[in-house]
Structures are given as structure tokens and as C-alpha cells.
């Protein structure tokens, strides 16, 4: 028996909206500790990793570990039927479920929707993600980072990110010209302006903006984002989800020939 009830169902809707352009089908692994999901994009350039802790759910029960193979496109069709203020419950009684039940309830419990989504059997291609002690970590407004990526992608499809003790520089070079945006440490008490740099070792890495713009669809999940980098490592972009877990995106760098 597996049942997970999320008080703020809108969070689940936002998570699916954040990843639906990146991955087509995913395995959600349910265990006693919560839900986890890991999937690569079709080009195997990016990887998304979701972890939702059981104590972030209103109700959570998972008698034995199960894997739920979902089509993201079909899942988002079902979630379109959930209101932003609804609770969302996922449920199945079977051990090898062929479908997953969804219940959407409004606040007054005066409207209850029930859907059943057919499950897919997907080969689990899970990768080992080593715990990395990143040498450059940037915490900043997710809206601001999203804006920087959008603006720079009109000049080039590649961005170079260079960190130093007191600032991070996003540079682009394209046919029309070049540009850079330098953001300094800023302990402002305004969220949108605050920038926290923890630079043990400066890095200079290059990434495809197309992927960063897709990751930034997760801005509605958290007002801050963290960029985690080490030389010769994929960038890790993390959106923490209050009291529930985190949505992480990993992006392999572009190496100059």
C-alpha cells in the first residue's frame, strides 16, 4: 500500500511543469523515506533529481518500495484537473501497480476528483551522483538568475560563468557582439538583490543557455537558487522546496576544443 497526501498540491503541479520540457518519462521511486526521481534529457546532457521527504507530506505511507513509471505528458494532463488550492493524494494498493490513483480535494472538501493514470515500465537508468564538495557556490534570487540567462541567450547560446572571491561573471560572445553581467556579493535584506558567494576555488566553466533556461522553469518553486560548480564537474542548480525536499538539475559543461 502506498499513499502520499500533499497539503499544497500546487507544489506537485509546479514540479511537473518545471521538468516537462526536459524529460519525457520518469520513474518515481517511493520508499519509507519519501519519493525520489532521477532522469536524463534525451541528449544525456542534463540530469534532473527530485527528492521529497515523507515528513513533508500531510499523510505518507509506503509499506514496501515501489517504482512508478510515469509519462510526464500524461501526468501533466491529469494535474491540469487539480486546482492550485487542492490537496493532491497519490495512492495505489498493488505491489506491482499498473496504474496510480490521484485524488484532488478542494479546501472545503466539497469537490473531490479522482483519476487513475496508467503506469509505464521504464528501464531504470539511474546514475550514481557522487556527493561533491563544490569549490564555488552561488546563492541568488531565482528570478534574477532566470533573467540573466534569458537576456544573455539572445546574444549567444553559450555562457561562460567565472567566479572570484567577490563576484561571479556571466559572459557571452555571439555573431552580433559580446557582453557580460557581473554580480557581486550583496548581503542586502531584499531577497531579489541578495547574492551569497562561497568561493573556495574560483572556476571558469561554459554551459549551454538552452538548458539553463529550461531549468529556470522551476523559479516558481523557490525564490532562491543555488549554482554549485567545481572544475571538470557538471553544474548543479538547486531549487529547495520548503519543508519538502529539493529539485536539482545537473548540466554537463561545454569544453573548448
Amino acid at each position: 500500500m502506498f499513499e502520499a497526501k500533499l497539503q499544497q498540491g500546487v507544489i506537485f503541479k509546479k514540479i511537473v511543469d518545471a521538468i516537462k520540457d526536459l524529460v519525457k518519462s520518469v520513474n518515481i521511486d517511493a520508499s519509507t523515506s519519501g519519493l525520489s526521481m532521477q532522469a536524463m534529457d534525451s541528449a544525456h546532457v542534463a540530469l534532473v533529481s527530485l527528492k521529497l521527504n515523507e515528513n513533508g507530506f500531510k499523510d505518507y505511507r509506503c509499506d514496501r518500495p515501489i517504482t512508478l513509471g510515469l509519462s510526464i505528458e500524461n501526468l501533466s494532463k491529469i494535474l491540469k484537473c487539480a486546482g492550485n488550492d487542492d490537496t493532491i493524494t497519490l495512492q495505489t494498493d498493488e505491489e506491482e501497480p499498473s496504474s496510480l490513483k490521484f485524488f484532488f480535494e478542494n479546501q472545503q472538501a466539497s469537490k473531490i476528483s479522482e483519476f487513475s493514470l496508467n503506469l509505464m515500465s521504464l528501464d531504470s537508468e539511474s546514475l550514481g551522483i557522487p556527493d561533491t564538495d563544490y569549490s564555488s557556490v552561488i546563492q541568488m534570487s531565482s528570478a534574477e538568475f532566470s533573467r540573466i540567462c534569458k537576456e544573455l541567450s539572445s546574444i549567444s547560446e553559450t555562457v561562460e560563468i567565472e567566479t572570484s572571491k567577490e563576484s561571479v561573471k556571466f559572459s557571452v560572445q555571439g555573431d552580433i557582439g559580446a557582453g557580460s553581467i557581473t554580480v557581486k556579493n550583496n548581503q542586502s535584506d531584499k531577497d531579489v538583490d541578495r547574492v551569497d558567494l562561497q568561493i573556495d576555488q574560483p572556476v571558469k566553466l561554459t554551459f549551454a543557455l538552452r538548458y539553463l533556461n529550461m531549468f529556470n522553469k522551476a523559479v516558481s518553486l523557490s525564490s532562491t537558487v543555488s549554482l554549485n560548480m567545481s572544475e571538470e564537474n557538471p553544474l548543479m542548480v538547486e531549487y529547495k522546496i520548503d519543508d519538502l525536499g529539493s529539485l536539482r538539475f545537473y548540466l554537463a559543461p561545454k569544453i573548448s576544443d
Binding site: 541528449a43 539511474s126 554537463a252 573548448s256
Partner: peptide, 14 residues
Amino acid sequence: KSTQKNITNYFQKQ
């Protein structure tokens, strides 16, 4: 010019 690496260059299949 630069070459896009794959995520599987860095993370091993389990």
C-alpha cells in the same frame, strides 16, 4: 568552438 559533454561522462550508471 566548444564541445558539449554528456552527463554520463561524469556520473556512472549504477
